[in-house]
């Protein structure tokens, strides 16, 4: 009976530790999982985009907060958009990011990742997880994840490669589009881009 209680307790502890997985542990776990798949999957190494998208969809997306990402990318125009427009923007931007991110992933073969100590803010709700991609004969590339603590766990809201935020790098392009054609023009522009990428890959 005592043994059973101990088992229950340890199972409970293990479960709650998993439920509150620290953001740096989470990043490391997902990265290693994804890298392992990339290294062992032939189709991915041959650059099969569809396969890469499926992988990202399944493993990576649940840990991203796309609404926050889109709001950051759009900047001050975000508040001018109606909830319906915000939803559409998020959908289109998500498609665009997933495709480019997935394709970047298939380029990884000989690289290894080094994980650096996380930098948490004072309230413990926002964290930067710095990692480094090491490649033979090349300089290491900084790859940082900015994450926030939400009710359903830690979520990524920005990915920064070599100091370049993949999210805020869109701000000027989006602003340009909104000034010329309004929020709907921006939605249309991203959607057109997505469709052309979709068509070219078939």
């Amino acid at each position: 009976m005592k043994r059973f209680a101990v088992f229950l307790l340890s199972a409970f502890l293990a479960f709650s530790a998993w439920a509150q997985e620290a953001p740096d542990v989470l990043v490391k776990r997902i990265t290693e999982e994804v890298l392992h798949i990339i290294r062992t999957d032939k189709e991915l190494q041959e650059g099969n985009t569809q396969r890469a998208i499926e992988l990202v969809d399944q493993k990576v997306l649940p840990h991203f907060n796309f609404t926050h990402m889109t709001a950051l990318a759009v900047g001050k125009d975000w508040r001018k958009a109606s909830p319906e427009q915000q939803k559409k923007l998020t959908e289109e931007f998500k498609t665009l990011l997933v495709r480019t991110y997935s394709n970047a992933l298939t380029g990884y073969k000989n690289q290894t990742i080094r994980y650096k100590p996380a930098r948490m803010d004072a309230e413990g709700k926002d964290v930067r997880i710095p990692t480094e991609i090491l490649q033979p004969g090349g300089q290491p590339v900084q790859l940082d994840y900015n994450m926030e603590k939400l009710e359903n766990g830690w979520k990524v809201y920005d990915v920064v490669v070599g100091g370049i935020s993949l999210v805020t790098n869109y701000r000027d392009q989006f602003g340009q589009e909104v000034r010329a054609n309004g929020i709907d023009g921006l939605i249309k522009a991203i959607s057109t881009k997505n469709k052309s990428l979709e068509a070219s890959k078939k």
């Binding site: 990011l97 993949l166 701000r171 000027d172 392009q173 340009q176 589009e177 991203i190 881009k193 990428l197």
Partner: peptide
């Protein structure tokens, strides 16, 4: 693939 406007994308990056 990522850029709506390649010139701006490269500049801002």
């Amino acid at each position: 693939e990522a850029a709506l406007d390649k010139y701006s994308y490269i500049r801002d990056a």
